[in-house]
Nucleic acid binder design. Structure first.
Length: 504
RNA sequence: GCCCCGUUCGUCUAGUGGCCUAGGACGUAGCCCUCUCAAGGCUAAAACAGGGGUUCGAGUCCCCUACGGGGCACCA
């Protein structure tokens, strides 16, 4: 039997990172076994569907490279893959259940239900329904129907005994049937609830492994009994653990505080990872390490490699928090492997979004040393600001001195650097580096270039932190550097007009 | 309140009765390297929630407690 898994989100908003994780595991498992992975849209709560959510969801999934073999847009032999378009199917099987006495029509009005709930709760019963329409005589049912009364279809849960939910990660989980009531399968608007829809769909779509969050474990007995009533073979249940909020309590939710107390940023929506400057393969690698281990103490691997050994059975049932700092590390590792051109292309949109116009050649020149410095593409913004916009001049010339580079030496060194860079031939990294180094060693009291290079960086880029000086100079280009040094020398003039030579 | 699940370094995890003086990774700290920032190398601190069993032997099996999480809709 070919393995068939599915990801079945509701189009109620942006894709959640936990959803990506669940989809990834289902996808990996299907790929591992050469089966199919499908995308199904559970939009039976029409009040909650948000226009555009479906598209955004598919865009996100595709950005990650999680491709479905069957789904709303690609079609497939078991479609349609959008539940509201399968309404008749659910109604047909709801009727089948009624005919075979596994379900019944319940005519309770909202008011009636509210009263019932209150009365039940007063007795400490939170089930919300007392099964009062379960055994209504056929004539009475016909009568109410003839009167045009609205109704829902409820499932006849077993009144006693236990239901075992066979869970791949936990074994048989036992539930007393007495704690359940008769749940709604078909709403009064004719649309199914999750319970009916997913059972019907998973059966007809021939899903072999139901992967879903643990929040479904408690209602799984309904599903198990439904499969039994229909006489359908039960898929394997895999209840995936929740992903917890690292900043506080509870599960990771879309309404969250953006940072934890130690200052790490909490990303939740799939698109936040895209905009945050992460590589999809890094995020996927990161997620694959949550609840599952590649093995051999290996933490960095491709999805192709993961597919070779992925197994749902070894997924941990324990809830976890996302270790975001590990994502940054992984992303940095992948960035280090990028070709300069590739990196330049990846980084540019982020610079532009930050309002920095940087030409590709300049960007390319500075990419080799930048590879090792970026955790996310967005990190490039602060590093390369000087390339994209006029950087502020130091407040005064003293800012360009150093205890090993007093004012007079600084003036002399900057003058020399100015002359040098204005004329240097060829204007290459090797030349710039050798000559600037020499200037530094010559003027510094310690004879080390370091202090001068640091001040030179500040002078040229206006930044305390930048890519290595020589690459920065190269990327800025002779013209801009010389112009910049003109301004720097003027600054020295203001501060110490008598320093250096004597034109005034 | 009732029911269900879970619990190894700060975090993600390895571990399926002896190979565990508990391994890896991120993060943290120190040192080296160094033009800033990084990267890289080396080193360090850091965990079996607690209590009872079972067993020659328990992180590994069982029970209880504690803690964490989830669920109890005509929402999924």
């Amino acid at each position: 039997m070919t393995v068939r898994t599915r990801f079945a989100p509701s189009p109620t908003g942006y894709l959640h990172i936990g959803g990506v994780w669940a989809a990834l595991f289902a996808w990996l498992y299907a790929r591992r076994h050469g089966g199919q992975f499908l995308l199904r849209i559970e939009d039976t709560d029409t009040k909650r569907t948000i226009p555009g959510a479906l598209e955004s969801l598919m865009t996100s999934l595709r950005w990650f490279g999680i491709e479905w073999d069957e789904g709303p847009d690609v079609g497939g032999p078991y479609g349609p893959y959008i539940q509201t378009q399968r309404k008749e199917l659910y109604q047909k099987w709801a009727n089948w259940l009624i005919e075979h006495e596994y379900a019944y029509k319940c005519f309770a009005t909202p008011e009636e239900l509210a009263e019932m709930r209150a009365a039940l709760e007063a007795k400490g019963d939170r089930s919300g329904y007392d099964r009062r329409y379960r055994d209504l005589p056929a004539e009475k049912v016909a009568e109410l129907e003839a009167a045009g009364r609205e109704y829902v279809v409820r499932f006849k849960m077993p009144l006693e005994g236990q239901t075992a939910v066979p869970d791949l990660l936990r074994g048989d989980v036992m539930f007393d049937n007495s704690q359940f009531t008769d749940y709604v399968l078909l709403k009064s608007n004719g649309l199914p609830t999750y319970h009916l829809a997913h059972v019907v769909d998973d059966h007809f779509m021939e899903i072999t492994h139901i992967t879903r969050g643990v929040e479904w474990l408690n209602t799984a007995p309904i599903h198990v009994n439904l499969f039994k009533a229909f006489g359908w073979e039960m898929p394997v249940f895999v209840h995936l653990p929740v992903i917890l909020n690292p900043s506080g309590k509870g599960k990771l939710s879309k309404r969250h505080q953006a940072f934890t107390e130690d200052g790490t940023e909490i990303l939740v929506r799939a698109d936040e990872f895209m905009e945050g400057g992460y590589l999809p393969k890094a995020v996927l690698n990161f997620l694959a390490n949550i609840g599952w281990t590649f093995g051999d103490d290996v933490e960095k691997f491709t999805m192709a490699e993961a597919i070779e050994r992925f197994d749902l059975a070894t997924v941990s049932p324990a809830p976890t928090k996302l270790p975001y700092s590990k994502l940054d590390w992984l992303n940095g590792q992948y960035i280090q492997e990028m070709e300069p051109l590739e990196l330049a292309k990846a980084v540019r949109p982020y610079l532009e979004a930050a309002g920095l116009e940087v030409n590709v050649e300049a960007l390319l020149l500075v990419m080799p040393p930048m590879r090792v410095r970026l955790k996310r593409f967005t990190d490039a913004i602060d590093f390369l600001r000087f390339l994209g916009e006029e950087s502020p001049l130091p407040a005064s010339a003293t800012a360009l001195t150093h205890k090993q580079l007093p004012l007079e030496s600084a003036v002399a060194a900057f003058r020399e650097a100015h002359t040098l860079l204005a004329e240097l031939q060829p204007f290459t990294l090797e030349e710039i580096s050798a000559k600037l180094m020499a200037i530094g060693e010559k003027h510094t009291t310690s004879g080390k270039a370091g202090p001068f290079l640091g001040q030179m960086r500040l002078a040229v880029t206006g930044q305390q932190v930048s890519p290595p000086l020589f690459e920065s100079v190269l990327a800025l280009g002779r013209a801009r550097v010389v112009e910049r040094l003109d301004q720097i020398l003027a600054l020295f003039e203001e501060t110490a007009p008598t320093a250096g030579d004597h034109h005034q």
